[in-house]
């Protein structure tokens, strides 16, 4: 770890003022401390924001506001999250371990970095995300865990979060602050696709602080399904977050997002367009999955993800349209 200074921010305004050039915000540290130890992240200063904006509150329009400093466990355990946004509770509980969920913050979860092994292998591998222009060893390497959607010739890494996939399906909005003021960003627009610059991962400006995540009122039913190599404590090969509103035997509204398959939480707009206003049933569900995955591109080792994503989308839609348990 390279030498650094540490400051604990007293509030968001203080945090933004303290976040001078070379500084990084510190949440629970579950990803950043590891990256610092590997010298992939080399901040000169840490501004600790883990004690700020803690809590989940109902908003006037019947939605929720989640403070960026709220720990993952606290979000998943919150009664309103469990009752109205089961997709979010389930996604969080499918991620990491209990110890890590007790530490990790909502803001840090969104901004965690890929677990691509070549990104982590600083001494032995080329990575455009770690060192722009260096090349990507994942392209021709072991890429079983890598992206089938939204990747580029410069980077095929996936975003590792489960929580963010649920949030993408919920039309969540990210609230941020800079020295110039506050703004709101749709969660689906927070992360950039890699293109030629996989080192630039979000639309946030230097020093811009995530202060909270707001959710609009929920659709009546939602769930999250994660497929992974072992049944607990593993990143997703494929995951699907889904929410649905049924009326008179057809689909009035639906939202789907995919995890483990793309450089960012992947909102499945193409699939939603096929489903919205249409009938319930396996034929429609398969057509929706095919529409979304028609642009999927397999690398050497990850072709299985296309069929796995197709089946998982159909399974989630089956679950959401079946008789309530």
């Amino acid at each position: 770890m390279t030498p650094l200074r540490y400051a604990r921010a007293v509030d968001a305004q203080d945090a933004v003022l303290q976040a001078t050039t070379g500084a990084t915000y510190l949440g629970g540290g579950t990803n950043l401390v590891d990256l610092m130890r590997e010298t992939i992240e080399r901040p000169e200063k840490l501004v600790d924001v883990s004690g700020l904006a803690v809590g989940v509150e109902e908003t006037e329009n019947g939605g929720l506001m989640i403070g960026a400093g709220t720990r993952n466990t606290a979000i998943a355990a919150h009664p309103l999250v469990r009752q109205r946004y089961p997709v979010l509770a389930r996604a969080i509980l499918a991620g990491a371990s209990a110890q890590i969920r007790n530490m990790a913050t909502a803001g840090g979860n969104l901004l965690q970095r890929t677990r691509c092994a070549y990104f982590y292998d600083e001494s032995g591998s080329r990575c455009n995300k770690r060192q722009p222009g260096q090349g990507c060893d994942a392209l021709g390497g072991f890429n079983r865990n890598h992206a089938i959607l939204g990747a580029s010739d410069a980077c095929v890494a996936v975003h590792p979060s489960d929580m963010a996939v649920a949030l993408a399906s919920l039309d969540a909005v990210v609230h941020t602050r800079t020295s110039k003021g506050e703004r709101q960003i749709a969660l689906t627009e927070l992360h950039r696709l890699p293109g030629d610059h996989p080192d630039i991962e979000t639309v946030l400006e230097p020093g811009e602080l995530v202060t909270g995540i707001s959710l609009p009122p929920a659709l009546p039913r939602s769930t999250y399904r994660k497929v992974r190599d072992r049944s607990s404590y593993a990143f997703a090969l494929v995951s699907v977050a889904g929410a649905i509103d049924l009326a008179d035997g057809h689909i009035r509204d639906v939202r789907l997002a995919l995890g483990g398959v793309a450089p960012r939480p992947w909102r499945a707009y193409r699939a939603e367009d096929v489903l919205r206003g249409g009938p319930i049933g396996k034929v429609a569900f398969a057509a929706a999955a095919d529409a979304e995955l028609s642009h999927a591109q397999a690398l050497r080792d990850n072709g299985f993800k296309i069929e796995l994503a197709r089946r998982t989308i159909v399974a989630v839609l089956d679950e959401l349209t079946g008789d309530p348990a």
Partner: peptide
Amino acid sequence: TVLADGERILSCLALAVQ
């Protein structure tokens, strides 16, 4: 794993100063 105010956490990913 240790307990911080009764909650289990990973002490390897925790900076002591926090």
